[in-house]
Design a protein around this nucleic acid. Sequence first.
DNA 1: ATTTTATGCTAATACGTTTAAGCGCCTGTA
DNA 2: TACAGGCGCTTAAACGTATTAGCATAAAAT
Lengths: 333, 333
Amino acid sequence: MKKKILISDIAKDLGISVTTVSFILNGKAKEKRISEGLTKRVLDHVKKVGYKPNELAKSLRTGKTKIIGLVIEDISNPFFANIARFIEAKAYSRGYRIIYCSTDNDVDRTIALVQLFRDRHVDGYIITPSEGIAETIQSLLSSQLPLVLFDRYLPNLQTNYVVSDNVKGAYDATAHLAEQGYKRIALVTLYSSQTQMRDRMDGYMRAIDTYKLQPYVKKVNVNHDEQAAIVDFQSFLAEQQPDAVFFATNYLAISGLKAIKQLDIPMPAVVSYDDHTLFKLFSPTITAVSQPIEAIADELINILLNQLDGKERALKQVMLPSSLLIRESSLKK
Amino acid sequence: MKKKILISDIAKDLGISVTTVSFILNGKAKEKRISEGLTKRVLDHVKKVGYKPNELAKSLRTGKTKIIGLVIEDISNPFFANIARFIEAKAYSRGYRIIYCSTDNDVDRTIALVQLFRDRHVDGYIITPSEGIAETIQSLLSSQLPLVLFDRYLPNLQTNYVVSDNVKGAYDATAHLAEQGYKRIALVTLYSSQTQMRDRMDGYMRAIDTYKLQPYVKKVNVNHDEQAAIVDFQSFLAEQQPDAVFFATNYLAISGLKAIKQLDIPMPAVVSYDDHTLFKLFSPTITAVSQPIEAIADELINILLNQLDGKERALKQVMLPSSLLIRESSLKK
DNA sequence: ATTTTATGCTAATACGTTTAAGCGCCTGTA
DNA sequence: TACAGGCGCTTAAACGTATTAGCATAAAAT
């Protein structure tokens, strides 16, 4: 049980003051005109005895934790998991650490997480806002805390955000189906008025207009009981008999595929917003709207770090293009 | 921009000492013989002005952060994601928070994460150890830090751990295939000498012995380049022509299924160690060895919290049973 | 010879809590 | 009357660091 070694121990060992050691360790040796000889002696000795500053004490003193809080909808969803991975790597290389938690799109959970991060004094926030979270976000804003939303935004709030072009993505997906000759193209989406869902609906409708088709929209409640959602969706399938289905999220697509599979009906053409490992595997493989994950992560971390460095105060609202990953091998008609 | 409110502000507002406020806020009012009237006044006032203690300062003073560090192989793997979810919920209800990060089974990353958590003074550690991490774990042990491993353990180290009965799980899976009449049952596993992999191999071999079959073992390097792993596995398939495949992990199964799909050969029977959303969807659906996820999470958090409370110092090494989720509808032979 | 400036370092305070030790007062006992 | 002890609260130190203001000496300028 070795005793914890402090900065004062270093100072004592070398017969100098704590201040000097602190300056050197924080890279202010030159600025504070500490001689090169002493600087080297200190650094060598620190390395030798393996001294590590107490980060808690540092944070208390400086008010900075060098930690970014990442509040994410569902880390087990590959889309979010990959975003998180990129963000983590990029933040790391710039001296920041990430801590993240999933909200499952639940408001109370989101509020609790933001509070947790606030309690821990994270330096900045990257958040996928769930519905009803506006007040909480507003309070972060009021406290001047660096913040950027992604995947969706809150229309009434002046915040930074990074989203993909959901309207165009959904339009392209629907148009792709229409071009292939499908006539009864259904949209399966959530009971949700979040911006990304609204925009995907919008894109779908625009394509329906362009191709003069009949819209078939099914809204599903997927959060609580997947089996109930599946049954619900099955009755929609039986009633409307779509020949193609555009799922507004990848997990909707997964539930949807389960539903179709159980039903023993001809498989409709399927497109999903956001990709999934699964889709490459499925027969026939599934076309997906693919968001530019790395670019999103890049924008997010840049916006946040620029704000943290005080370089940038202007509002940054970024929209990036999605692309269609066409996978069907057998074209219809 | 409201100014941050301190415990001293509370004390000043009420004309009492900071100590008294602190005692009350930490539930020591009775123990410290603070009158009920004052206690109530303080609590009311704290609620009214919305005072929140600075957790950093608390942690610095007490040496406790009420945070548990969860170092996990891959949070986007449903098995680990679910474990994490349960652990988080259970810890939360006992006043602890979780921060977690993925290692991707990379030693350097694991070491860096443990160091990060150490720097942040987490109170305890739950870790899926990657290979080559023994030294790091030993150093946690030497510093008397509460610690429990899971999914696998380090045979040379005296640590707490929670694992499932990998030998029996793998035996049951293999035996199940043998009972169905499959003769060329292959095991696909990793280049890894971690305990869980060793034990799954062991269980497979025992079943092979029981049923007097020929073993077919393929070791795959899946971490770096999935496509290379797929090609590698495909040549194994072509050469050995197994009629059934037991994958030692769920992500191996996914890569394996991709490989099989590309190959246009008759689909062998497939069993996977650990379940996956995907498996319910696949045709034919895939049997899986299912670990008792909630029980594992329960044991982990109990062991750790009992240690944190100082209730328990004895070594806890727990093995829980896995069960076989049989899903094939069409039996062979 | 005196004042100014540069050099290289340090003393002391602050960050926001918790907690050991103790202080004055009141009550009850002898 | 004197004293012990309980009651209800407070004083002051501690956690480990960063940083402002400043000090002593030497060199340069007047």
